[in-house]
Simulated scan of single mutants.
Amino acid sequence: MFLSAMAAEKGRGATLNGESRRFNLAERQADGDWLDAIEALDGPAPRRRTEVTVEHPRTILTRNASPDISFDQSINAYRGCEHGCIYCFARPSHAYHDLSPGLDFETRLFAKPDAAKLLRVELSKKSYHVATIAMGTNTDPYQPIEKDWRITRSILELLVETRHPTFITTKSDRILRDIDLIADLARDRLAAVMLSVTSLDPAVARTLEPRAPHPMRRLDAIRRLSDAGIPVTASISPVIPAITDHEMEALIARVAEAGAREVTYIPIRLPHEVAPLFRAWLAEHYPDRAAKVMAIVNDLRGGRDNDPGFGTRMKGQGVWADLLRTRFLKARKKAGFSGEKLVLRTDLFRPPEGAQMRLF
């Protein structure tokens, strides 16, 4: 794993920014004594600004065969996520770019402006098999930089044109900027949204998800999406023992009141570099209960910080997992959720128009 202690930076989630050791990368390059004393000589480093690098992938659809996940193809318009959620399971993916899963993941982002163009090529293939395209599976499609790049909107415009089904996961009310396109698809049962509300406490949310919208804005987004006829599932994931688990019943009641059609949860997962990042975050923000939190997490995960096993990684195991599940099911029933499964249509798909317009 990795460790590189640093002072917590206001507005960012991670308190570490060391390199991953999974690929035998050095924790730090030999750079001479002068870098060790740079802060003493020049003063504290300036606050990190968000940097965006343009990425030009050859393809845009990612295939998935995990038995724990309900979709088999997805699009991620961005790599890295400015929301800075300390628990984000996607953080380790930044190591593939020789970047830190810590602060680099939140500040050194990648955008794929050709995403819609690449998707048009995929959807035009005769061999293409229509299945719901998930967005927001790795990093949030409505993180702050979407305001300027509008890549997610360009993808949605193509999905509207081709009448292709999509499932969008986000924790941002910025999704409302595209409510016209999503509502268009939803009218034909071609779109659904999962919106995450992890805590109702602004103080908790501010450290847990420092650049994600306020919880009340997310509840309002659920209400406005639902009023527009868009089916919304609320996610209260991750549930963090001794940090957010006491809010479970209140969260479920509030998302039901806002109009969500279903609710879901996952106990916190800490794969790869996420575990040391989360431990450092606990030490910074919750030193009074850090040991208790990790003891419960370890109990949930079979004595480890993380359990990667299919079938258990999304649910947890043991007494604590059973307790969370029981509380969730009771609160879900009390809030009036029916458990009805939403199935998006695939029969309305029409391949995109090429250089020649359709004859019919």
Rank of each mutant, 00 (worst) to 15 (best):
A5D: 13
A5P: 15
E9P: 09
G11C: 14
G13R: 00
N17R: 01
S20R: 01
R22L: 07
Q29H: 13
L35Q: 11
A37H: 11
L41C: 06
G43H: 02
T50K: 09
T53E: 11
V54T: 13
R58K: 02
T59P: 07
I60V: 15
I60Y: 03
R63T: 07
S74G: 10
S74M: 10
N76R: 06
R79G: 04
Y87M: 02
S93K: 03
H94F: 02
Y96A: 11
H97V: 05
D98P: 10
L99K: 08
P101E: 05
D104V: 01
F110L: 14
A111Q: 10
P113D: 02
R120M: 02
V121K: 09
L123T: 00
S124I: 09
K125M: 12
K125H: 04
K126G: 13
K126Y: 05
S127H: 12
A131C: 08
T139W: 12
Y142R: 12
I145R: 09
E146L: 14
I155W: 08
E157D: 15
P165D: 04
T166C: 11
T169G: 08
T170N: 09
T170Y: 02
K171T: 01
S172W: 13
D173K: 01
D173R: 02
L176R: 03
L176A: 02
A183E: 14
D184E: 10
D184A: 00
D184R: 01
A186T: 03
A186H: 07
A191M: 06
A192I: 05
V204K: 13
R206W: 11
R211D: 08
P215C: 01
P215E: 02
P215W: 00
I222Q: 03
L225P: 13
S226D: 12
D227H: 02
A228R: 04
P231I: 01
I240Q: 04
P241C: 00
A242S: 04
D245L: 07
D245M: 09
D245R: 05
E247A: 01
M248F: 12
M248Q: 15
I252C: 10
V255I: 13
A258Q: 07
V263M: 10
V263A: 06
V263Q: 08
V263E: 09
T264N: 15
P267S: 00
I268D: 03
P271N: 00
P271F: 00
E273A: 10
A275I: 03
A275L: 10
L282D: 11
H285Y: 09
Y286T: 01
D288T: 06
R289H: 13
I296Y: 05
N298R: 10
N298I: 00
D299V: 02
G303Y: 09
G311D: 14
R313E: 11
M314R: 00
M314C: 06
G316I: 03
Q317F: 01
A321P: 12
A321G: 06
D322Y: 08
L323E: 15
L324T: 04
F328W: 05
A335S: 13
E340H: 07
L344W: 02
T346R: 14
T346L: 13
R350S: 05
R350E: 14
A355G: 05
Q356L: 15
F360C: 13
